[in-house]
């Protein structure tokens, strides 16, 4: 039986792991390689690295880091952040990333998704969708939540599937960093709408939140950052808990 996946996310800035609250304040959370290795040892099912480094010259640091991660860890990992072209994605895949994740750049130029899927296969293409309720409608937002778009979240999810995305990483901007739980309603709506896996993200604060996202939505995976980085939830303990709740995990 296919298992539900638990995915720690490492936000990377200038080669270090950081985690903001509501995408604003930034706290240092340590060396990405040692964190990544700790998560693998603890039974993480995949890892996601999101690069939030702004400047272009620092992107070289990221490529070196990706090479190191690929050499040292034995589970799949996704790299996202600042991928605007096929060339950007290619550098990361050549460095050893199993999947790349695109977000704002795909909203600006949806063809990018098709190009990535054609070159690397859908399985390597994750489309990250940041979503926020605006006047009662779930809308896609970009630039870390600062810019609203015209896209309705469900329609955009359908569109990215059509363009060849292999997976959707859905973040509720209202839940992110709150530790009040995943956004069930929108996660459920998106996962009903598409026939590709959906990773729920944003809002994990306790073990019960993982149980409810898997019980009450079709999400295939749940992603979290700070609760893992700061040891508030231990992955082995989370997985044994989910097993007692009859949720299939590795």
């Amino acid at each position: 039986m296919l298992k539900k996946r638990i995915i720690p996310c490492l936000d990377i800035k200038d080669g270090r792991t950081v985690k903001g609250v509501n995408f604003l304040s930034i706290k240092d959370a340590g060396d990405p390689i040692s964190l990544a290795k700790r998560y693998v040892a603890e039974g993480a099912d995949e890892l996601v690295f999101l690069d939030i480094t702004a400047s272009i010259e620092k992107r070289k640091t990221l490529l070196g880091l990706v090479e190191q991660i690929a050499a040292e860890i034995n589970i799949p990992f996704t790299v996202g952040g600042g991928i605007n072209s096929l060339e950007d994605a290619d550098a990361l895949i050549q460095a050893g990333a199993d999947k790349v994740s695109v977000n704002s750049s795909a909203v600006k130029r949806p063809e990018l998704i098709r190009e990535l899927a054609k070159n690397y296969g859908s399985q390597a293409v994750v489309v990250a969708i940041d979503s926020k309720q605006i006047e009662g409608e779930w809308k896609v937002v970009i630039h870390g939540g600062r810019t609203a778009t015209e896209w309705n979240t469900l329609l955009w999810a359908q569109e990215v599937e059509k363009l060849g995305a292999g997976e959707i990483l859905l973040t509720s901007m209202e839940s992110d960093g709150t530790k009040d739980g995943f956004a069930l309603e929108i996660t459920n709506a998106v996962s009903q709408q598409v026939n590709i896996p959906v990773i729920a993200s944003g809002g994990a604060g306790k073990k019960e939140h993982f149980k409810s996202i898997f019980q009450d939505s079709k999400a295939s995976a749940a992603l979290a950052a700070s609760v893992f980085h700061f040891g508030e939830i231990q992955i082995p303990e989370l997985k044994s808990y989910l097993k007692t709740q009859n949720i299939p995990v590795r």
């Binding site: 296919l2 298992k3 099912d45 399985q123 292999g166 026939n195 590709i196 896996p197 295939s220």
Partner: peptide, 13 residues
């Protein structure tokens, strides 16, 4: 078949 999510992505026994 499209009765399952495609691709199959993740850990299976």
């Amino acid at each position: 078949p499209s009765t399952e999510l495609v691709p199959q992505m993740g850990w299976n026994n």
